[in-house]
Design a protein around this nucleic acid. Structure first.
Lengths: 167, 167
DNA sequence: ATTTATGCAAATCGTTTGCAAACCT
DNA sequence: AGGTTTGCAAACGATTTGCATAAAT
């Protein structure tokens, strides 16, 4: 429903949660995770990771492809699946039709949440106080138990309208 | 990626968060909300709302259509858009390719969150302690302000594997 | 009488997949 | 060599839309 240029995905005043990890460390971890899944760290996969390292926030496929014109769309899709399964990247689904990708928290070592623009799909990274995270975890674990549900990870989003869509 | 019968969407031990509102009240509210958006409360729209009232949890389009065979798919899609815009229903997007729908919190008067099965897309409704909700709201509001983001509503999901997908 | 809603079938568009060539190990 | 990855183009499938008919005001 909302439409905009899906290749843009900007960042706000502060630095993003991503740029805390050094590129070489990220690649090392990525290689390890892929190896654990019997997958190779090919040139294209490394390229994808590099693009995500360089990004200030979650990127759409279009955004990723626009960074390098020597990247086949189908390979991007395929490799993002592999990277996701290996736990290297994380796929974010919003009401926007375009999936977005970011490095996984295992890789960046950060736990964060999102502000999601309902109009253009733009995503900002945010963090919550550790105490709040703990309480949340505890409550969710309790609810999961009631439903015999095996929780894996939680997600907190604030949905609204970003500054540029408002103006 | 995960696949299963999208027409099924069961409930667990307890009652769902939905069955607290009386059907007549729901219809009255729905009519009001639609009127406020210059939209009619047509037969098909009422049917959709009825199906959601009767459901124990969020339903996919397939699940909705399977409840009544005299409901055209395109009309379901179109009317769900109208109902969503009027704030009568709420659309839930997961990694599953099938959008799911539930009555909006304005209508049910309940604020709840979700356990989402990563394999089959099944969704359970859960609630968090009011105190925790308040802290969460406050933290999110603070973050929104930092990004000049106009928050509308928050969302908390626990993603994992449901009992039947585990067995 | 006009506007709005319906239902069918066709179109759309992000994503997935078949297949032959290129790449690793 | 033997299996994997790549890139092109074709296929897929949930959702959307054009259009003629039916309903509502």
């Amino acid at each position: 429903m909302p439409q905009s240029d899906p290749s843009s995905s900007a960042a706000p005043g502060d630095r993003s949660a991503h740029d805390h990890a050094r590129a070489s460390d990220v690649h090392k971890l990525a290689a390890t995770k892929l190896a654990a899944h019997s997958q190779r760290y090919t040139t294209n996969r490394r390229r994808l990771v590099d693009i995500l390292i360089g990004s200030t926030g979650p990127l759409t496929i279009a955004g990723i492809l626009s960074e390098r014109d020597d990247l086949a769309q189908s390979s991007a899709y395929r490799n993002l699946v592999v990277l996701e399964e290996a736990g290297v990247v994380h796929r974010i689904i919003t009401s926007d039709d375009h999936a977005r990708f970011e490095l996984s928290e295992d890789i960046t070592g950060e736990h964060h949440h999102h502000l999601i623009c309902d109009r253009c799909g733009l995503i900002y990274d945010i963090t919550l106080p550790p105490g709040l995270e703990r309480q949340l975890e505890a409550s969710l674990a309790g609810e999961a138990q009631r439903f015999s549900f095996q929780g894996d990870h939680h997600r907190v989003d604030l949905v609204g309208i970003c500054q540029s869509c408002r103006s």
